[in-house]
Design a protein around this nucleic acid. Sequence first.
DNA 1: ACTTGACGGTTGCGATCGCAACCGTCTATG
DNA 2: CATAGACGGTTGCGATCGCAACCGTCAAGT
Lengths: 159, 159
Amino acid sequence: MARGYMTNGGMDRLDLLRFVPFRLNRLAAEFSNALAADYARFGIDIPEWRVMATLGMHDEPRSANYVVRCTRTHKSRISRAVSQLTELGFVERLESGDDRREIMLQLTPKGREVYEELLPLLRAREEKLLSGLSPAQSSALDDIMLTLERSLGLVSCKK
Amino acid sequence: MARGYMTNGGMDRLDLLRFVPFRLNRLAAEFSNALAADYARFGIDIPEWRVMATLGMHDEPRSANYVVRCTRTHKSRISRAVSQLTELGFVERLESGDDRREIMLQLTPKGREVYEELLPLLRAREEKLLSGLSPAQSSALDDIMLTLERSLGLVSCKK
DNA sequence: ACTTGACGGTTGCGATCGCAACCGTCTATG
DNA sequence: CATAGACGGTTGCGATCGCAACCGTCAAGT
């Protein structure tokens, strides 16, 4: 019998607990929830963290649009996240010389401190969440996500 | 070097694209988005579908609280979803004989029709989303999700 | 140059969500 | 019984989100 499908009673039924989109959603929600406590410690939330994580990967400033493409988050959400991060003094907006539409973003020293402090907490949380998996499973998961990301066109984070 | 961690420049950095919680969230959002078109065809959304899917699994009515536990969705969300489904005529609320706090739910004939019509669409969508995976990967994914669900206590759907 | 459309970013608005307070009912304790 | 607390379900409220409209800037075609 195919995974997730039931044929008892001659009636067509779906086992929700084996329906991948549902399971993925539930797991993602659980993961997000587990990390929320760490974000909250610094007064930020998921979108704000995504901005900081993106900026933290590089030394040079990046545009807001780069963050949008890289994180696949809606631009309005990124815009508001940046506003809050500037209020908190974690990020600053710089005018771009060559294209005055673009707004370049970079972590402030304070923002870099927060980033460096938040990192180990998030890593530990991730590791704990995945601690039930064997090394082979962990590697397989990485592989599977990469395959799915590729087929969904989620891998690009260029420029 | 550990997965997802960068050590260049002596500075502690995180590769967001290899951070599992982020990737999981993104994939789940992409999956949900892909299914949204099918739900919309019948005027419902994810929470409504969860209610219908849960009720569709059984012949006997189930309580709203059962749906809450089974889907791990907040009870206010389920409550509102049920309200909309009753307005649409897909679900009906029955008074419970033995405990008058409980409200038993069941699909109406019309709701059952919609369920039967929606099922193959969602299955096809799921299959397409996973079509990039080899059978071994598909099986491994099921295994991994089950392991994670167990370690997070998400497997119970009793009573 | 002028116009047109594309693009980066912001914001107003309606919809949705989760939290918490609430109501009615059940149950345990005395 | 009487009362207190637990429980199923609903709802008001504040916060958040995505969409679309918008503003200013850039690039291409004439």
